[in-house]
Simulated assay, not measured.
Amino acid sequence: MYGEILRTLLNRPVQSERDVRIFALRVAMVCFVLAMLADTALQLIAFHGWLNLFRGWAITIFVVALVAYPLGVYIGTTRLEHHRTKTKLNEQSLADSLTGLRSRSSLPVDYDAISDASRLLILVSIDRFKAVNERYGHVVGDRVLIRAARLIAEELANLGRIYRTDGTEFVVLASGCTVAEAKTQVLALLARFESSNFGTLEKPISLTASAGIAEVSQATTFTQAFAAVDAALDSAKATGRSRVCLASEPATPGLVEGDEVVWNSDLPPLPKRGRASRS
């Protein structure tokens, strides 16, 4: 029973400086109780008067304060460093190796962990990025992706965690904001994309991005939520790119050639043809 009490007192997780101080106090308390019990037992076995008993107690208290608490601080700090190292390694294992953003594998877990009644998924995709790789090569393409990821983080990091879910697609898992607020920030992001140079002064690279936003309830599964935001992004791509579409709005189907929308739902339909891959 006593061993279980000690384990309960000393095996609490140490995850902050405050936890270190609490752990040190627990160590000091345990040492104090054990030392006082031992000292009292010895004094009673060979009792030499109350003065000697009180003197022994005072010495015990002094030694415990001088040794046990600093020892507890040292052990607690060691456990805190271990926790921080473990957390850092876990974060690195969940990070995208190119951009440093969180990877897709952690997105469903984080999605399910949010307890808010309403969440937002924001899916941002770089338009026609394949042309960058074909013209400048993949090394330059990777640099452009890194700059694009930084731009997205600068504009949208306050909304929630950001993930790289595909080569040129990024997801923001947001809570605590409205669709209107999120749309305003995403529009500001797309404007920065249009005005930014992702290359060098000698070889400027211009990009645009499209986005979809889906507001999902607590009962909506991640698969359902991602399908909704993915459809919203498809609508943004199909109706001209460099724009934001909401999953709650009716989709406007269309065909795009170059930068021009050559058909939408307000015009007579064109003959069917194969669907091009999203870019």
Results as ranks from 00 to 15, higher is better:
76 G>I: 12
76 G>E: 10
76 G>W: 12
76 G>C: 10
77 T>N: 01
77 T>M: 03
78 T>Y: 11
79 R>I: 13
79 R>H: 15
79 R>W: 14
80 L>N: 08
80 L>H: 10
81 E>C: 07
81 E>Q: 08
82 H>N: 11
82 H>T: 15
82 H>L: 12
84 R>M: 04
84 R>E: 09
85 T>D: 05
86 K>T: 03
87 T>R: 07
87 T>E: 09
88 K>W: 00
89 L>D: 00
91 E>C: 00
91 E>T: 00
91 E>P: 00
92 Q>M: 01
92 Q>Y: 03
93 S>M: 09
94 L>S: 08
95 A>R: 13
95 A>L: 04
95 A>I: 02
96 D>R: 02
96 D>K: 02
98 L>A: 02
98 L>W: 04
100 G>Q: 10
102 R>G: 04
103 S>L: 04
103 S>E: 01
104 R>Y: 09
104 R>L: 08
105 S>E: 13
105 S>F: 08
106 S>Y: 03
106 S>V: 11
106 S>K: 13
107 L>P: 01
108 P>E: 04
109 V>Y: 14
109 V>H: 14
109 V>A: 15
110 D>R: 14
110 D>Q: 14
111 Y>W: 15
111 Y>N: 09
112 D>R: 12
112 D>I: 12
113 A>S: 14
113 A>Q: 13
113 A>P: 03
113 A>F: 08
114 I>N: 15
115 S>A: 14
116 D>L: 07
116 D>I: 11
117 A>G: 13
118 S>Q: 15
119 R>G: 09
119 R>Y: 13
120 L>A: 09
120 L>G: 08
120 L>V: 08
121 L>N: 08
122 I>M: 09
122 I>T: 13
122 I>G: 11
123 L>R: 13
123 L>Q: 14
123 L>V: 08
123 L>G: 06
124 V>T: 07
124 V>R: 10
124 V>I: 13
126 I>L: 14
126 I>E: 03
126 I>C: 05
127 D>C: 03
127 D>V: 08
128 R>Q: 15
128 R>G: 02
128 R>V: 03
129 F>E: 05
129 F>Q: 03
130 K>Q: 05
130 K>P: 04
131 A>M: 11
132 V>T: 01
133 N>E: 04
133 N>T: 04
133 N>G: 09
133 N>R: 01
133 N>M: 06
134 E>M: 06
135 R>F: 11
135 R>V: 02
135 R>G: 06
136 Y>E: 10
136 Y>F: 12
137 G>L: 10
137 G>H: 11
137 G>N: 05
139 V>M: 06
139 V>A: 11
140 V>D: 09
140 V>R: 13
142 D>F: 06
143 R>A: 14
143 R>H: 15
144 V>Y: 06
144 V>T: 09
144 V>I: 07
145 L>N: 01
146 I>S: 07
146 I>L: 03
147 R>S: 00
147 R>I: 08
148 A>W: 08
149 A>L: 06
149 A>C: 05
149 A>R: 07
150 R>E: 10
150 R>N: 10
151 L>M: 14
151 L>E: 06
152 I>N: 10
153 A>T: 15
153 A>P: 06
154 E>F: 06
154 E>D: 15
155 E>P: 02
156 L>N: 10
156 L>E: 11
156 L>T: 10
